[in-house]
Amino acid sequence: MSEITLVEAVNQALAYEMQADDNVVLLGEDIAKNGGVFRSTVGLLERFGPQRVLDTPLAESMIAGVSIGMAMQGLKPVAEFQFMGFMYAGMEHIISHASRIRNRTRGRLTCPLVFRTPYGAGIHAPEHHSESTEALFAHIPGLRVVIPSSPVRAYGLLLAAIRDPDPVIFLEPTRIYRLVKQTVPDNGQALPLDKCFVLREGSDITLVTWGNMVYETLKAAGQLAEQNIQAEVIDVATIKPLDMQTILASVEKTGRCVIIHEAARTCGVGAEIAAQLAERCLLCLMAPVKRVTGYDTIVPYAKMEKHYLPTAEKIIKAVEDVLSYEG
């Protein structure tokens, strides 16, 4: 079996579920004939036809709203927003409707859909193509926010997202779309939502991260191991609802935690994790929780973006600070 990239795993999951379930339809800009600007839907128009792979007019609010209408009729739309920075035009529908239809109608109508979008910086793209604003969605009751960080998890989590009976925001880290390849059996096996993945076990410190930052964090953990520091690396994967159980169990074991995300620091998801650690296991902490994040600035344009993003070096520095904390 050949190895595939994260973006190919997305395609494989879409194809699998479209084959398995006639209710799954895809819509978005440039997704049909062109196969998506990142090629995540390539070949699906040819395979499933124009009734189920729909190029829409260029209007993101419309893409969000129409998907919700379809979902209320029992279709399972998987809509692509070309970039996260263009998704904001659809926010009214996501916040005011998708997340609330079930609650508003006391279960009479539901909204089983997936809103996919490439997100994150590091690909030298123009402004609005490097957003990492997942916390906006994580704040909204009724939504799920899922972020895969490997081909295997992209496949399994996207299948789970499509099968989930509620709306899922599925954020695909562009920087690792083609960074690594893995063998991904096309067996239709979903991975669990609402669960963290422990990517590396360790006893000295817990590194909590997701999306693009998983690879920088793993790199840092590898270098720390050379100094005989054993870091446990957790890929949160579903940032809403948070699986605090897994994070707490790890921090109870290690007593130290660094949270890494590329989004701006203030009110980022890291703040919620840190707050919950303070509420639930303050006394098991041997040092304050530290965050390594993007700055509280606009993501810079391409030339400066590498200075904005957390790196393995910055993570290692934070780990050393936490380990050397003496109260």
Binding site: G65, I68, M70, M72, H97
Partner: peptide, 23 residues
């Protein structure tokens, strides 16, 4: 649909429902 408070948003959901009928 129930009453929608954010005005005109129902128009897009209506289009989605009509899309489902058509598909």
């Amino acid at each position: 649909l129930p009453i929608y408070v954010p005005l005109a948003t129902q128009c897009l959901h209506a289009a989605g429902i009509a899309s489902a009928f058509k598909l």
